[in-house]
Structures are given as C-alpha cells and as structure tokens.
Amino acid sequence: MAAEPLLVAENLELSFGSTTALDSASVQVHAGEVLALMGPSGSGKSTLLHCLAGILHPDQGRVTYAGRDLTAMHDNERSALRRSEFGFVFQFGQLVPELTCLENVALPLRLGGAPRRAALRSAAAWLERLEVSDVADKRPGQASGGQGQRVAVARALVTRPRVVFADEPTGALDTLNGERVMQLFVAAARDTGAAVVLVTHEPRVAAYSDHEAVVRDGRVRTREYAR
C-alpha cells in the first residue's frame, strides 16, 4: 500500500482579475518522488507550483503538506515552514551577487541560526556534491550559467528540505549543461529523500521525473500516480 502523499493540492481555483489561472487543479507528490509539472507557457504550471509552495494563496481549494493545511495557516507560520522544510531553485539562480558562492550556499543555514563555521563547512560539502567546489570563493557573476545553477541547487538542498520546488531550473542553460544540472540535482535530492516539484516545458528535463502532471488552461490533464 502506498504511503500518504507528502504534498496534496485539491481543486485549486485562482484568478488574477478576470484571468483564470487555476481551474480545479489537483495534484499530489510523495516523499522521495520527482513530479514534473508540464504544459505550455501561461498554462498555470508555475502558479500551481507557487500555490503548492505556499507562496500564492488559492481562492478556493486546499493544499496539504504532511497532513497540515497550508491554506489555513497564518502567513508567518507558512513562511517559517517554507524556510525550514522547503527549498527553491529558479530559472536564474537568484544568488546574492555580493556574496561568494560558498557564502550563498551557507546563507540559508546562517539565517536559520547555524554558527558560521558549521554553515560554511556544510556549504562546502554541498558545493563538492554538485561538483562546483572550484567556484566556492568566486562571486556568482564570475561563475558560468551552469555553475551558478549548481550553486543554486546546493543552496536549495543545504537545509535538507523535504520538498524542493524548481521552476524551469535549466531554462537558461544549453542542453549539456542543463542535463548535468538535472543529473546532479535529482541524484542529490533522491539521496536526501526530498520530494521534487519541477516545473518545465522541456520533455528532456521532465524525463528526470518519476511522474508528470500536464497543466493546460489551469487544469491538470494527466494524473499518473500508479505506484
């Protein structure tokens, strides 16, 4: 019997003005699983990711994380949860340009109150895991696009989140660099047992997932959860 899903969205509705972004969208992801949210631009896949991560609040419907109703939480409770249990990777690494790559990776640990040396040690291990130790002392601007994304993945994983949300993480990279990022990212996430919610419109990137959910016009077309 399959375990309970870790993260569940049920019948999410969300409109921006007169534009319907989500129309009864439902999806679920289990611990240790990689779910790809696919679909054309403007289909609502990123909006769905933002609702799953508690960044956006749906007009209707419910998001449940580990049995807790995300949609019913207070904002600061949700923010705390995001910091401690979720990790994020975006299309452009969104690294802090003034910090070195190592300090960028250590940042979430520092913000969580970890002592500086322990945070830097842990960050260095993650840079090594993502094969970018050579840019540790460089600023993000001095690293290549592929290196920057690996640093961003290291930063997302350093707090050992239970869910990593990735929105087009290879969108700005060429094929080979994008694949290397995905290989290292998915392998590292699987090692930590984290679930991954991956937004992508690229089938080759989606091929790193265990399941896909296709979003079109704010609805989830495909639900394939055979386990």
Binding site: P203, R204, A206, A207, Y208, S209, E212, T222, E224
Partner: peptide
C-alpha cells in the same frame, strides 16, 4: 505523451 515520456525516462 505519457507513453513517450515513459520511454524518455
């Protein structure tokens, strides 16, 4: 699509 993705995996 699901079948194609299965093979791609």
């Amino acid at each position: 699509r699901a079948e194609h993705l299965r093979l791609m995996r």
